[in-house]
Design a protein around this nucleic acid. Structure first.
Lengths: 223, 223
DNA sequence: GCTTGACAACTTACACTGTAAGGTTCATTT
DNA sequence: AAATGAACCTTACAGTGTAAGTTGTCAAGC
C-alpha cells in the first residue's frame, strides 16, 4: 500500500490568467523551442494534462498569449499629428514584442485572426486611412511598414546580435581576415545600436510616405 | 529462420548532395514543422540513422541547406549602377527564399556564420560601401534593408495570404461588419499583389538612400 | 449530515520526435 | 585471402503533444 503522504492541492487553483502568465515566463526562461506543456505544468505545480482543461492545445494557448499582448496595446491619441501616431503605434508593437524576446519570433509570424487582433489591425489601418493615401496605397504602405517592423523585431530578438545559430563557426581572426566588411560592420549591429538603426529605417519610410502624401514626388519604380 | 528476401541496396548510394536535395523536397511537402529525419529517410529509401553518417545532426543538415541556397547567389555585375546592383541582390535573395517557401522561415531567421554565407554578406556590405555612405550609415542601411527584406519574405511565405494560423477564426461576414478596414485592405494582400507591394517599399528605401547619398536631405529623426 | 453531480485535476497510454550506442555488411586495399 | 574501415541498420531512450479514462473535491439540494 502507498504510505507516502501526497500533498493535496486545492482544486480550481488554475486559471487561464495564471497559465498564460506562467507560459510567458517558461518561454522566456526555456526558449520557444524549449517550451513544453510538461515544463509549464512543473512551473505551475500541476500535471501537464490539467492545463488542457483550460486550453485545448498548445496552439490555443499560444494564440491566447498573442491576444494578451496585442490586447495590451492601445491606439495613439487621435489629437496627435498623423506621423506621430503611426510612429507611436509602431514603437508600441515593437516594445511589446521586445519585452518577450523569446516569444517574439512566434508573435511576429502569427497570422492574427482573433477579434482582439483584428480590432488592433483595423485601428492601424485606420491610421493609414487618416494619412489620406486612399485604399490601395494605404494598404500597401501598411504592408511595407509591417514588413519592416516584423523583420526588425525578428532580428533584434533572434538575430545576429545573439551570436551565430550556425553549428560551424568562424573564428574572429578568420572573420577579420577573410570577411573584413562583416567584421567592421559588426560594430553597428550590437544591442546598443538597435534603437538608432530602427529609427533610421522607420524615418526613411515615414519621410517617403509624407512625400507621397504631399505629392512632392512619387517613388521611382522598377529601376 | 528468416526466409524473406531482403533487397540489398548498394553502399555509397547516399551523399550529402542527395540528402540535401531530398531534405528540401520533404520540407516543402511536409512543411518545416512536419519535417523529420525519419520522413527524410523514407524519402531517401534508407533508415534514419544512415543520414547521421553524412550529417551529425538536423542542425548541421539545415545549415548545409542554407549554405546551398546562399551559395547559389552571385553578386550583381559591377558595371551596373549602384542602385540597380542593390536592387538585383535583394531580389535574388527574395527569389531564392520564395522558391522554398516552407524553408523560408528558417532561412531568413538563420544567423549566418559559415564561410559561404559570410562571403555573401561581405559582398552585400561591399555594395553599401560602393554606395558611398561611409561605414556607419552603410552598416545601418544594410541592417534596415535586411529588416525589410526578411519581413517581406516571411510575410510572403508564411503570412496573411496563407490564411489564418489562429485556431479561433472570424467569419467573413463578421470581418466585413466589425473590421471593415481589414476586410477592405485584404484585397491588396493576396499573392498577386506581392511583387508590387514589395517593390513599392524597396523603392521607398532606395529613394531615401539616394537622397541621403546626394545630400538632398537627411532623414528626419525622432519626430 | 448525507447524497449527488459537475467540474478540476490526475493517470495512463500512444504515436511521434532526435539521436546515442553498438552491430552488420561490403568495397577496397594489402 | 585477410583485414580494414566506411556506410548503413537495429535497438533503445528520453522527450514531445495529447486522447481517453479515473479520481478527488467542492457546492447545492435533500
Amino acid at each position: 500500500m502507498d504510505t507516502s503522504i501526497k500533498k493535496k492541492r486545492p482544486r480550481g487553483r488554475l486559471s487561464r490568467e495564471m497559465i498564460e502568465a506562467a507560459a510567458l515566463k517558461v518561454i522566456e526562461s526555456e526558449g520557444l523551442a524549449g517550451f513544453s506543456m510538461r515544463k509549464l505544468a512543473t512551473a505551475l505545480g500541476c500535471e501537464a494534462m490539467s492545463i488542457y482543461h483550460h486550453f485545448p492545445s498548445v496552439a490555443h494557448l499560444f494564440e491566447a498569449l498573442v491576444d494578451r499582448l496585442i490586447g495590451s496595446l492601445e491606439m495613439p491619441d487621435t489629437d496627435l499629428p498623423w506621423r506621430q501616431r503611426l510612429r507611436i503605434a509602431v514603437q508600441d508593437f515593437r516594445r511589446v514584442a521586445r519585452e518577450h524576446p523569446a516569444f517574439a519570433s512566434f508573435f511576429v509570424t502569427y497570422r492574427m485572426n482573433s477579434p482582439t487582433c483584428l480590432a488592433w489591425l483595423n485601428g492601424i489601418l485606420g491610421l493609414f486611412e487618416a494619412g489620406g493615401f486612399g485604399p490601395e496605397l494605404g494598404a500597401r504602405l501598411f504592408r511595407t511598414t509591417g514588413y519592416y517592423l516584423m523583420g526588425a523585431i525578428l532580428d533584434e530578438t533572434a538575430g545576429y546580435a545573439k551570436g551565430p545559430s550556425a553549428v560551424t563557426t568562424v573564428s574572429d581572426e578568420q572573420l577579420a581576415q577573410d570577411f573584413p566588411k562583416v567584421a567592421a560592420a559588426g560594430r553597428y549591429f550590437g544591442t546598443a545600436e538597435f534603437d538608432r538603426t530602427f529609427d533610421l529605417g522607420l524615418d526613411m519610410l515615414l519621410d517617403e510616405m509624407e512625400r507621397a502624401r504631399d505629392g512632392t514626388s512619387a517613388p521611382n519604380t522598377g529601376s
